[in-house]
């Protein structure tokens, strides 16, 4: 009776819950958001293929800056966190709260590992001489990957809150499963965005001897 009365769970015209629909709409908007950031990065990579110059005037090539093994590892971790998230959502739908907690804790830990790798990467690049101030590449790289990192951090915070909320006994039933599923949608989206960023920001720098963008210099023999 009261379930029907609750405004966000009254039968909807489409049969889709309001919360799920609004999350899909938010993700549509977020697509444009990341699209704009990624475009900015790609435009400037094409314009300035030579990388950046540090404070001492040394020229750096992006390919030699990146540590692709580390980034591949953190990408793998993030992908696996999506797998655990799917398990957590499934557990919640079946009402298995303990299984939900286990899996969501895994997502949180994997998310934190990813963020740790990003913090390490940022510090490492900073010591290599790449700052947000010394080049356009630094600006677009840090702001794009940093914005993605912020999305991951918000997701981790959200899941931590859900995790502890589950101990109050109030997370359950259709509403609880929906709340977890909506968080899952967000998490998967942030993961998919990372796959795109990993491809167009990192991987294509390794296409060919001088990367996809070239170096602006004669091709190395």
């Amino acid at each position: 009776m009261s379930q029907v009365a609750e405004s966000s769970h009254a039968p909807t015209s489409t049969g889709i819950d309001h919360k799920k629909l609004i999350m899909w709409l938010f993700l549509a908007s977020d697509c444009m958001f990341f699209g704009t950031l990624i475009s900015t990065h790609l435009i400037y990579r094409k314009l300035y293929p030579t990388g950046f110059t540090d404070a001492e005037g040394h020229q750096h090539f992006v390919q030699r800056l990146f540590d692709i093994e580390l980034t591949s590892f953190s990408t793998f971790i993030l992908l696996m966190s999506s797998f655990l998230m799917a398990l957590a959502v499934s557990a919640m739908h079946k009402g298995q709260i303990k299984s939900f907690r286990r899996n969501v804790l895994g997502v949180i830990i994997f998310g934190l590992i990813f963020l740790g790798c990003q913090v390490y990467e940022f510090t490492h690049f900073y010591h290599m001489g790449l700052t947000i101030q010394n080049s356009v590449f630094g600006s677009t790289f840090y702001v794009l990957t940093g914005t993605h990192g912020t999305h991951v951090a918000i997701g981790v915070l959200w899941l931590i809150l859900l995790y502890f909320y589950s101990f109050t006994g109030k997370l359950g039933g259709h509403v609880g499963a929906l709340d977890v599923e909506v968080a899952g949608l967000y998490w998967h989206f942030v993961d998919i965005v990372w796959i795109i960023i990993f491809t167009v920001v990192y991987l294509i720098e390794y296409l060919g001897p001088n990367g996809f963008w070239g170096t602006g210099l004669p091709i190395a023999k």
Binding site: Y48, I132, Q133, S135, S139
Partner: peptide
Amino acid sequence: MFDRQFGANFFNPSAGGQ
């Protein structure tokens, strides 16, 4: 905002911003 408050170069012409 990053250009103005944190010294980024998105639109800073002297650093190659467009």
